[in-house]
Write a protein that binds this DNA or RNA. Sequence first.
DNA 1: TAAAAATACTCCATAGGTATTTTAT
DNA 2: ATAAAATACCTATGGAGTATTTTTA
Lengths: 305, 305
Amino acid sequence: MQRKEPALNLKRLEYFLAVAEELHFGRAAERLEMAQPPLSRQIMQLEEELDATLFDRGRGQIRLTQAGEALLGHARAMVFAIEEARRDVRLIDQGAKGRLRVGFVGSATHGVLPNLIKSFRRTYPEISLSLSAMNNAQLHRSLIRRELDIAIARPGLDDAEIKSLPFQEEPLVLACSDTAEILTRAPVTLASLQDMPFVLYPEQPRPSFADTVLAACSAEGFTPERKVFCMDYQTAISLVAVGEGVSVVPRSVGNSGHQGVRFLPLANNDARTSLSINYRIDNRERHILRFAEIARKLMLKPPAA
Amino acid sequence: MQRKEPALNLKRLEYFLAVAEELHFGRAAERLEMAQPPLSRQIMQLEEELDATLFDRGRGQIRLTQAGEALLGHARAMVFAIEEARRDVRLIDQGAKGRLRVGFVGSATHGVLPNLIKSFRRTYPEISLSLSAMNNAQLHRSLIRRELDIAIARPGLDDAEIKSLPFQEEPLVLACSDTAEILTRAPVTLASLQDMPFVLYPEQPRPSFADTVLAACSAEGFTPERKVFCMDYQTAISLVAVGEGVSVVPRSVGNSGHQGVRFLPLANNDARTSLSINYRIDNRERHILRFAEIARKLMLKPPAA
DNA sequence: TAAAAATACTCCATAGGTATTTTAT
DNA sequence: ATAAAATACCTATGGAGTATTTTTA
């Protein structure tokens, strides 16, 4: 069974536009690079379909009826709308326009992330960026639910659905209270602190930053006796400030300085941490590529100061 | 030679809408009452034509890409615009919407014209009426140039291009100064005034109202000795008021009353005058029919008071 | 009467159908 | 393993061409 044809297609509108502008079937056909009879037929079919007379046919000069004039306006608007839609869709597909939803862990705000965002906004002003800070667990969930396009996690999100690209690798530093006795004996090794309480964050989901720190301890042959877990680095630093123990944080966090806390380099330890850019493997939007590109370029530059 | 196909036709947009709404080719095909393979092909061709990926094909559920979402918005707007254009054109063609340019002689304003306009506006509120007062010569010229759709003339416009429908027939009355001696000897015959100057209007184009009056004189067996021509009835009445002579006007003009002028019935004379609705014979717009219809209905009513 | 649009017919490009294969979960 | 989309191939509608007639100014 054949479906009923609406017959008001764009081709007919273009034909109509040509005739309405030339007010002469022969010349319009010429302009459309076609013969006159099929053009006449198409216009007649258009009139039939619309159940309206569009042209007053008199030999010397054909004229638009009022209905024809109205259609002329509508047709022009539609042709314009089509072109606009075409451009819009194309730009979005190319990743030059659209929206990118980025989530990130709080500790990323001390490193290159602000520069990355600025650089991205400058390069792709037509892409609207939405930014939300969350912990690794939330990042993972949002990415799976497609509520985010990109998650900036530390160290990464372990999921078959997710592609994880390392990004901004840096050493770890020790965070301790600025009244701590440790301050007197720099450089410090982790092993020398094994009796102190270790403030770690977060525990879940694996791999977590806590795993990175514990691995660094293992490398020095011990496991901290007392472990305090919290949700994020901000809480961890607060706990350190009030003397709850020591913590280990990325150097970029230490560089920013925090009230009541001192950051010390770790001796004899090459443990490092890195952020990662994470996105769903099945997300083919070019915006992600665009973001990753900017990030890569930014990392190539010698780190400023 | 075949013309390059734009291929972004409305059918494809409708197919796209169905798939975008169902997010399932099979169900969309069912809804469109067609088979799935041609639908898949049409969508692929649409993607190719736009040079953009519109759907993320994963087995469980297909999803719209950002480009697809953008197209969805544009497509909905376009389908809506099409429907609107269709309605608009149809209504205008039916004569239920649009514009009607009416010109009329000044003397028409004393008769049914005001009621006709009111009635028309009430019946077709969607038709925008433009009204202009002019003399017969201007009416004729504007109609020929297609600057007017309808001309209300007295008695009519004589042109092979113009169709003229009589309208509001009425007797003639005499206009004389209110100080005239004639007032003492009513009823008056035209013949009894043959020595007075006759104020006539206008002379051109033929047939003019002046012709009507002169014909009435002929019927009584004389031709006025002294004739004064002017452009319109307003001037004629002013001339009568200042004693330049007598004039003959349609009764409706006399009914309105004018400073310094008296109107008297004519005895033994069945001369009548009528307005006419005039329009180009090649003007097929239904608006004219609508106007004529209202006029006819109005004339059928027993003349109020 | 002559210029232009409408009609008559022919052809083929492409939308759409059916059968089948590929893909992705 | 299976549901769903893609591919292969065929059919037929309808858009476009050429030749001709009709219309109207």
